[in-house]
Amino acid sequence: MKSLDGQVALVTGGARGIGEAVVHAFVDEGASVVLTDVLEEEGRALEEKVGAAAARFCVADVTSEADWAAVLAEAEQRFGPVSLLVNNAGIVEFGSIEKTDPRTFRHVLDVNLIGPWLGMRAVAPSMRRAGGGVILNVSSTAGLMGYAGLGAYVASKWGLRGLTKAAALDLAADGIRVCSIHPGPISTPMTAGMDDTITADQPIPRFGTPEEVARMAVFLAAEATYSTGSEFVVDGGATTGSMMLAAPEE
């Protein structure tokens, strides 16, 4: 028996990167998956690759309450009540506090924070019908520490970390666990073009892979049955501290 047999999952930002890896990992473990994205071509290609029996792609904007309702209706009609939600969709915008305009700041919050809130709000009744469930909010190491020039992104990811804890408390009585995942530098389209030097001082001095984050998601969905409201970090040790001032070897 596979670890996610009989589970119905909804994965946002599922067309590529971490989301795509989560889709593959969940299907491999026996789940049926509805994946959403605004990238229609990539999403439909992934549905075809995985197979319609196990995966269904829906074009959806996570900031749209109507889109969430439509996706939940599609998931329940095709596979049944949703028991797993991975809020993975996210964007990044670079700019200092002074140089970021209000419209951009609000857009990042809309996608990275309001979107997951709408998703949890929409999926909770379905999870009650399923008898419980697991919600995984993909935050970032930017939800654990600050980064210069990324004020909007940092604010959104810290907010998602806090929202995770509030949701864990609100939904505990319904048998719904809620945890946050905090990836560090991962090789995805979002990090394309970033220099390898940003990982040079990590204890594990390389970019992570989407598959490594997906394995954490599978663990949290299937095995971490005594964890809720907690942060799980996949960052090569980046948030452990600096190795720059390490004492010289004798």
Rank of each mutant, 00 (worst) to 15 (best):
G43T: 06
G43V: 08
R44L: 14
R44W: 08
R44Q: 12
A45C: 04
A45E: 14
L46T: 03
L46R: 08
K49Q: 14
V50R: 04
V50A: 09
G51K: 03
A54C: 08
A54W: 12
A55W: 08
A55I: 01
R56Y: 12
R56T: 08
F57S: 00
F57E: 00
C58A: 13
C58Y: 01
C58H: 03
V59I: 08
A60E: 03
D61F: 10
V62P: 02
T63K: 03
T63S: 11
T63Y: 03
T63P: 04
T63Q: 04
S64C: 06
S64E: 04
E65I: 01
E65C: 00
E65S: 09
D67C: 06
W68M: 01
W68C: 01
W68L: 02
A70Y: 03
L72F: 10
A73S: 14
A73Q: 11
E74R: 12
E74D: 14
E74H: 11
A75H: 08
A75V: 07
Q77E: 15
Q77I: 01
Q77N: 14
F79P: 02
F79V: 02
G80L: 02
P81N: 04
S83D: 12
L84W: 06
L85R: 09
V86D: 05
V86F: 13
V86Y: 06
N87Q: 05
N87A: 15
N88T: 05
N88Q: 11
N88F: 10
A89D: 11
G90R: 01
G90V: 02
G90A: 15
G90K: 06
E93A: 15
F94N: 07
G95F: 14
I97T: 08
I97L: 15
I97H: 11
K99L: 07
K99N: 14
T100S: 14
D101C: 13
D101P: 13
D101W: 09
P102L: 15
P102S: 14
F105D: 14
F105H: 04
F105S: 02
V108D: 07
V108L: 14
V108G: 10
L109G: 09
D110W: 09
D110K: 05
D110L: 10
V111R: 12
V111S: 10
L113C: 09
I114F: 13
G115A: 13
G115I: 12
G115W: 05
G115K: 04
G115L: 08
W117K: 01
W117R: 03
L118E: 09
G119F: 07
G119W: 13
G119Q: 06
R121I: 04
A122R: 10
A122D: 12
A122W: 07
V123N: 06
P125I: 09
P125T: 04
S126I: 07
M127Q: 02
M127H: 05
R128Q: 13
R129E: 11
R129C: 06
R129P: 05
R129S: 06
A130D: 02
A130T: 03
G131S: 05
G131M: 07
G132Q: 05
G132D: 09
G133Y: 11
G133P: 06
V134Y: 05
I135M: 15
L136R: 00
L136H: 00
N137E: 08
N137A: 07
V138Y: 04
S139Q: 02
S139W: 05
S139L: 02
S140K: 00
T141D: 12
A142E: 14
A142Y: 12
A142H: 08
A142M: 08
